[in-house]
Write a protein that binds this DNA or RNA. Sequence first.
DNA 1: AGGCGTCTGTTCGCCACCGCACAGACGCCG
DNA 2: CGGCGTCTGTGCGGTGGCGAACAGACGCCT
Lengths: 249, 249
Amino acid sequence: MASIHNPSQNSLLAALPAAEFERLAGELELVTLPLGERLYDPGEQLQHAYFPTTAIVSLHYVMESGAMAETAGVGNEGMVGVSLFMGGDTTPSSAVVQAAGHAYRLERQVLMREFHRAGLLQRVLLRYTQALMTQVTQTAACNRHHTIEQRLCRWLLLAVDRSAGRELVMTHELVAGMLGVRREGVTEAAGRLQQAGCISYRRGHISVLNRSALEDRACECYAVVRKETGRLLSDVRYRQEPVPALPVA
Amino acid sequence: MASIHNPSQNSLLAALPAAEFERLAGELELVTLPLGERLYDPGEQLQHAYFPTTAIVSLHYVMESGAMAETAGVGNEGMVGVSLFMGGDTTPSSAVVQAAGHAYRLERQVLMREFHRAGLLQRVLLRYTQALMTQVTQTAACNRHHTIEQRLCRWLLLAVDRSAGRELVMTHELVAGMLGVRREGVTEAAGRLQQAGCISYRRGHISVLNRSALEDRACECYAVVRKETGRLLSDVRYRQEPVPALPVA
DNA sequence: AGGCGTCTGTTCGCCACCGCACAGACGCCG
DNA sequence: CGGCGTCTGTGCGGTGGCGAACAGACGCCT
């Protein structure tokens, strides 16, 4: 049963040299992450770091008014819980499972211990944190200057890049939460994209039909995030089986 | 002449134990940063890290369209150039001097060497990076949900917190660039704040008259950033001579 | 003192997005 | 198979912010 799961499905873990990988492998615990599960809440002391393989996790911030906005997403290219090794142990954000799947998790103490060995793991984690920062930065600018439709395209592309297939289990309502907009706004934008043949959807499911058309309608932010993630994690990339790989220089 | 300047005016440097501080002191170069100077541009290989003392630096992102938005500000509580030790050497953002003043800078190689000693400097820098991430995250959410007036209040408060006095040398035009809005929007919002007695301004200068009134009109984001920065840098705080210190738990 | 570049004030039409309200449709579950 | 909860479609008025255009005012510079 566990044979189909392997820590090296996560790019960060896969990037480690054999010795470090082996040392960690014994400590990694495979967990199943159901849709909607909260990995941590604002101000909460983190106990584990998560390395998603098939799951996708969304980092977001909830305002006093209840309004929310996603600041970054994490798939098999990254990890959840960077503040463990950055210090401070908590953040004002929360992390919620956006697509059910699996992840390997590591105890807080184990992660800290390995991080402070100053081996390749440290290097990989810091680089990933830098990529995460880029993503958040881009989201900040994007939120300010781009339309709902552009941001929806960007979000869909980033989401399918992290998925095995091209169908997302996702309602307009949830997407609206991620983008920090009204549900109706998503319905309208999605309707236009469907009419244009970029995507198709039915109650709770969204499929990407035409990647490049979506990329044309997306804002520059998608390409920036993708390119920068590729650059920083060089040989370590997003999972992208059926995807015509962007030439990551 | 140099006697009035001291590296310990920067909180991160001041937080170092004597031994580490001394070792660095010889390598720190005092520089004068004039308004508008660009410390780095997107994609450029960084050569120095900057630890501001009296200067304030703004990190921002410029879109293809030319529109821009600040993602974070750095004063004497922080440093510019975290990507040096995070890896990757470059970022898609740029750093521009927002308020003229001084900073100490460190050669790239020296910073790297000291960072990898894994002493307190590393710890301090990672914690600061975490605080920076909080600031960017908050900006992302704020850009999505708050009005120009609220964001202007937040921005003014963060700016005076980093300044010695309560007057900022700053035009509406520049502020608009930071907030990623039209100049006219800033003029209108500033007009209202002046009428309410929160601030006063004249051509190129803005003075904060009533902090608490500004705080009331600001969005929650100001308090979150300030509190989180205080928490992460515990004994290491924003300069705040005339400011009634927030109880930083 | 005069002149000019920059900064500020104000106005007007326009549009993306909001908040609300409600109709229909899907699909799970008893 | 019928029923109900959730999700999707659509329409309405309201508004914050945009883009453009221009008048006035400040203040530096000669």
